[in-house]
Amino acid sequence: MTADTALTTPDCLLTLAVPAALEEDVLDLLRTLPHMAPGFTLVPAQGMGAHIHLASSMEQVQGRARRVLVQLAIVQTQVEPLIDALRKALPTPQIAYWAAPLLAFGRLGSLS
């Protein structure tokens, strides 16, 4: 692995837990930041807990809220700048995030 590769190989998994109502806003913003968020994965989820806003009648009955997890494999030094950009554009306590070390990242084949 070269020094250039080591600098660009993702070493952090950033996860955003986004309410369904804000999903498109977050995705639109991430698309405008390809230098910080070159790609991401969406996972349907449900949130439960004291700080979860239950928007619909169905969510109130079920006691859980629809969420999407947006996962980004990025370089750890990009986490804070990306979170800052998200916070400035969408200053809401309804979007939670966490970052964890990414032990490996790669592809099973070459990109064409």
Rank of each mutant, 00 (worst) to 15 (best):
R31D: 15
V43T: 15
P91R: 01
E24G: 14
Q94K: 09
V68M: 06
T8D: 07
T15M: 13
A50V: 13
I83M: 05
A6F: 00
P101I: 12
F40C: 07
L111Y: 09
F105Q: 12
C12G: 04
Q71T: 07
L27T: 11
A37M: 06
A104V: 02
L14V: 03
S56R: 11
A99Y: 02
A96G: 10
A20Y: 09
V75H: 00
I52W: 10
L69K: 15
H51L: 12
T15G: 08
T92W: 08
F40H: 08
L22R: 10
G39C: 02
H53S: 14
P91W: 04
I74V: 15
L27E: 06
L30Y: 00
H53Y: 10
V70M: 11
P44W: 05
G47E: 00
R67F: 07
L69R: 11
W98H: 13
L103S: 13
V61D: 13
A100W: 07
L54R: 05
L54S: 07
E59I: 07
Q71M: 12
Q60V: 11
V75T: 02
L82Q: 00
T77G: 09
E80D: 15
G39N: 08
Q46I: 07
R64L: 02
T5L: 15
H35P: 02
A89Y: 11
A6Q: 05
T77C: 06
L30S: 03
L72G: 00
I83K: 03
P101D: 15
A99L: 03
L42A: 12
Y97C: 09
T32E: 11
M48P: 04
T77Q: 10
A21T: 11
Q71A: 06
A99D: 08
S56Q: 11
L14A: 04
G47Y: 03
P101C: 12
G106N: 08
P34T: 07
Q71G: 04
L13D: 00
V79Q: 08
L29I: 05
L72I: 15
L111H: 12
L90I: 01
L82E: 00
P93Q: 13
E80H: 08
W98K: 09
L86R: 10
T32Q: 15
A20L: 14
L30G: 00
A100E: 13
R31G: 14
A50G: 09
A65L: 01
L13H: 03
A3C: 00
D4R: 11
A55N: 09
P44T: 04
V68C: 06
T2M: 05
P81T: 02
M36R: 12
P93G: 12
S57C: 03
L102R: 04
E80R: 10
P93I: 06
P44H: 08
I74S: 00
I74C: 03
L13I: 04
A21M: 12
K88V: 12
L14P: 02
L102K: 02
H51T: 12
E23D: 14
G109P: 06
R64W: 03
F40S: 02
K88S: 13
T41V: 11
S56D: 03
L30H: 01
A3H: 13
F40T: 04
L13S: 10
D25W: 01
E59S: 06
